[in-house]
């Protein structure tokens, strides 16, 4: 391996890593609440809401991310009233914003699937007990359903986070230079294909390891252990 190439490539890849990180952080930070909302919609008793959310999820899960990013970036700009709306144009007119939007919409669909199964796996008795205590639906969601579902969903969600980091590479197809975009440019510039590939994969693996470790720590934090001494402190009803 040639070290001058490594020294040359790393600063460029670091600037790319910043963009990748930006897209991924927005993807996780906005995609998670969006996905949970979708999951709630899919488990809601309202048939119309349920069907609409189902359709959204199957469309975004059934088509490649590349098509989605192209539809958002190239396709939507064609529609007149979207162009004239400043807010939407701010979202889709710029490559980086469009990439973030695409990642967010895409990961929302997958996250919804993860959380839907988590919500469905909750024991009925707990929710019924909460209803019997007179909790409002919002409090049941906040204090019973969500904490339990989060614990169920976290292992699957951590692999979704790794997927977000990888999917953010598609931003390079709409001229946003993130890690893969820089890697391609460096490959055609230096012709040291294998060296650049190895350095780039180290970047991606580091990002993934950091993300997965953080989630693993969170998982351990949330892990439910029955400690006999603490049992007295738990009160069944919010008073």
């Amino acid at each position: 391996m040639d070290f001058t190439i490594v020294a040359y490539a790393i600063p460029f890849l670091l600037t790319g890593a910043k963009t990748t990180l930006l897209i991924s952080v927005f993807g996780v930070g906005l995609g998670l609440p969006f996905g949970i909302l979708l999951a709630l919609a899919r488990t809601s008793p309202n048939r119309l809401v349920c069907k609409a959310a189902d359709a959204y999820c199957s469309v975004f899960r059934g088509t490649p991310m590349l098509v989605q990013i192209f539809v958002i970036y190239y396709g939507l700009g064609q529609v007149g009233f979207l162009r004239s709306n400043p807010v939407i144009w701010w979202l889709i007119g710029d490559g980086l914003h469009a990439a973030i939007l695409a990642v967010l919409l895409n990961t929302g669909a997958y996250t919804a699937e993860i959380f839907r199964t988590a919500f469905l796996s909750l024991p009925r008795g707990l929710v019924e007990a909460a209803e019997a205590c007179g909790m409002s639906p919002w409090i049941i969601l906040r204090r019973i359903k969500f904490p339990l579902a989060l614990r169920q969903a976290l292992p699957s969600y951590s692999s979704e986070v790794a997927i977000i980091v990888k999917e953010s590479s598609l931003a390079s197809t709409i001229a946003v230079l993130e890690i893969t975009g820089w890697a391609k440019r460096l490959m055609s510039e230096t012709f040291a294909i294998m060296d650049i590939f190895i350095i780039t994969s180290v970047f991606y693996l580091t990002l993934n390891v950091v993300g997965l470790t953080a989630l693993k720590l969170l998982e351990r934090q949330l892990w439910f252990e029955r400690r006999p001494t603490r049992r007295k402190a738990a009160s069944p009803c919010p008073s």
């Binding site: 990888k166 999917e167 590479s169 598609l170 893969t180 890697a183 294909i193 294998m194 590939f197």
Partner: peptide, 19 residues
């Protein structure tokens, strides 16, 4: 398997194609 699963598909394609 760890490298290919941890790296975007696009990068694998670039490696094979340019390489």
């Amino acid at each position: 398997s760890i490298v290919v699963r941890g790296v975007p598909g696009l990068l694998v394609i670039y490696l094979l194609f340019f390489g």
